[in-house]
Design a protein around this nucleic acid. Sequence first.
DNA 1: GTGCGACGATTTTAG
DNA 2: ATCGTCGCAC
Length: 718
Amino acid sequence: MDVSHLLDELNDPQREAVTVDDGHVLVLAGAGSGKTRVLVHRMAWLIQVHHVSPMSLLAVTFTNKAAGEMRGCVGQLLNLRPEGLWIGTFHGICHRLLRMHSAEVGLPDTFQILDSDDQYRLIRRVIRDMELDEGEFPPRQIQGFINHHKDEGRRPDGIECFDHSFQAQQVAIYRQYQDYCERSGLVDFAELLLRTLELLRDNDARRTHYQERFSHILIDEFQDTNTLQYALVRLLSGPQNRLFVVGDDDQSIYGWRGAKVENVSHFDRDFSPQVVRLEQNYRSTETILEAANRVIDHNAERMGKNLWTEGDRGEPIRLFAAWSAEEEAEFVIARIQDWIEQGNKASEVAVLYRSNAQSRLFEQALLREDIPYRVYGGLRFFERAEVKDAMAYLRLMHNVNDDAAFERVVNLPARGIGQRTVALVRDHARANALSLFQAARELVERNAMSARAANAMRVFLTLIHELTETHRDSDLGEALDAAIKRAELQAWYESREPPDRAEARSENLAELVRAADSFDQPFEDEQAGLSPTASFLAQAALEAGEHQGERWEDCVQLMTLHSAKGLEFPLVFMAGMEEGLFPHQKSIEEPGRLAEERRLCYVGMTRAMQQLYITHAESRMLHGQTGISRPSRFLAEIPAELTEDLRPGTKAAPTAVGRAPEPADGLRLGERVRHTRFGSGTVINIEGQGPNARIQVNFESAGSKWLVLAYANLEPGG
DNA sequence: GTGCGACGATTTTAG
DNA sequence: ATCGTCGCAC
C-alpha cells in the first residue's frame, strides 16, 4: 500500500516522530510546530503501516474540541468512519469505562455526573447539614480542597491531619460529601478519574485487559496532566503497549489548577522514550518568534527548545504606552479599524488580556465603533440556570433518586415547599438511607408533615411521577418539552425577571429542546448500554457547549490569554501589560508562579501570525479605584531591535519601558512597605529624589497616602 | 415566599 | 465598580 501521503507533507522531525518503530515516544512540540498533524499522522501510520487495529488505539486530549478535531482528521486521512475509535478527553474516556464497569466500582448504572456548579451546591448543603459555619468553611474553598485531594488521588482516609484541627474538619466535610454522592449515585469530575484509577489499580484482570487492548496510547498536551492523570497513564501502560506523548513545557499555564509540568520530565525519566523536538514553526514571523524565544529564555528549568521559521522577518512588534486603560482601548480599536479598512477580516483579530474584567473597555469601544465582536468566557450553554433547571427535571425523570436534581427544582417554580419542609425531608432521608424523593413520598404517605406542606409536596411528586410515566418511551426532546411546559418554567422566569432576561431564558429553553431533538447518541454510548437520556445527560455535563451563539459571524475575538492557547490569529493585541496585572500581583512573589506567567506571555505572543501589538496603560481603574502601574517586566525582556515604540518619550520614558525607576532610597514602585501608623501597603508612585522625594503608598487599611520620604519612616516589607 | 439593602470578594478554567 | 450571596423585614 502506498503510504507516502502520510509522510509527504511532514518535515524531518515530524516524520521521525510519526515513524518511530519501537519504544515510547516523547514529542516536545513548540507552539505552531504542527503537533496535531503529528498525532493524527502517527495514528494513521500505525493503522496503515503497522496494521494496528483502530480499536486498539487510545488517544487522549484535554478538551472535547481537540478530541473532535482529531477524530475528524483521522477519519478524513484514513477515509474511515471514526466512530469506533477511542479518542476522547480523560474525563470522557473514564466516564465510558465507568459506564462499562459501573457495578464493579460500586456505582448504580444510572449514575449522574456533577458539574462544578452542582458540586458547589452539594458541598454547601453538606456544610449546612453538618451545622458548620460557612464563614469558617467557605464552600468554594472546601470545593477546592476536595478537588485538590482527589486530583492527587487521595480519599479522606489518605489525608494526614491532627485530631480536631481545621484540616480534620475539612476532611470530615470531604467524607460527608463523598457519602452523599455515593447515596445519590453522583460522580464529580475528579471522581470520574479517581474511580477509574481505582478500578485499574485494584483489579488485576481489568488492568491487564486494558493494557493489552490498548496497544498504543497517545496523549496530547502532556504538560497539562495532573497527578491523577499521570497515574492513570502509568496504570494503562503495560509491558507490551507503547506511549506516544506530545507536550510543551513552555506552554504549561495551568499549574494553578493542578497540572504538573514535571510530568513531562518524569515521563522522560520513567519511560525512557525516544525524544523528538519539533522546533520549526509554521505560524509566526521571525520577529515574533525571536521575541517570544527571548522572553521564555528568562525561565530556568526548561527542557530546552528554540523555535525557528523559514518565514519572513515580518514587521516589528509594536509597543504602545497609553495614559489610561480607556486610551489603550481606543488605540487598539483604531488599529482594528485600520486593519478592517485595509480589506482584512475582523475575525482575524484577537485582543488578549490577563483577566476577564479587562474586556469591558474593549467591548464598549467596539460597540461605539460598531465593530462586531465576540467575548469568550462566561457561562456556557449547559451551565445556564434555566437550562440546568430544565435538565434537573429530566434528571429526575431519568432517576428520581438524583438528590442534586431534587434539591434544585423541588421548589422551582415556587410551589410552597419551603426550607422547613425540605429540611424535614432531608432528615428523614438521612435517617433511613433513602433518597430525597423516596423520603418525601414516605412522609407524605404517612401524613408526617403539615397539611399545607404535604399538599405542596404532593403536587411536586405527582408532577415528576406523571412526567416519568407519560414519557417513558418518548423522544428526548418531547420529554424535555413536556417537563418545561408542565413545570411552567417559562411563566416562572417571566413573573420575576425583566422581559429581556426572561425572553433570553425562554430562547435558551427552546434551544435546549431543539438540541435534545437533534441529539444523536454516540455509537459507543449505545454500545455501553446507555439510554439516549443517560447519554444526553452525560454529554451535557461533560461538554457544556459553546459560550455564545453567533459564532460564525465575522467578528473580533476578545479573550483571556489562557483561553487563547491553541489558537492563532494574523493580528494579535496583548493589552494591559503592566506589573501587577501581568504578571498578576498574586503571582509576583513566588518564582514558580512568575515563571508560569512568563509562559503565559510566551503563549500569548506565539498566537500572532503576522502582527503583534503590545500595550499597557499608566493608570487604570481596578476594584473601583484608579491605580498607577509601570510596564510589565516581560516588555523589558523583548530585545529593543525587534520592537517599534509607537509613543516614545511619554511619561513612561523616565521609567523607560520595563526598566524600574531609579530607587528613591531604595524604594521602587510596587514595593511593599510598612508604616508605623498606617500599617503595610504598596508603593504606587514616587516623585522627586533623595530625602525630599514624595511617595504615594496604598495602605491596606488606611488607603492611599502621599508621604515625604524623609519623615515617613518606612520599613521595607510588610 | 419575595424584595431589598448590606456586605464582601475580585486571575486564569476544561471536564 | 460590580456582581453574587445573605439576612431580615414585609
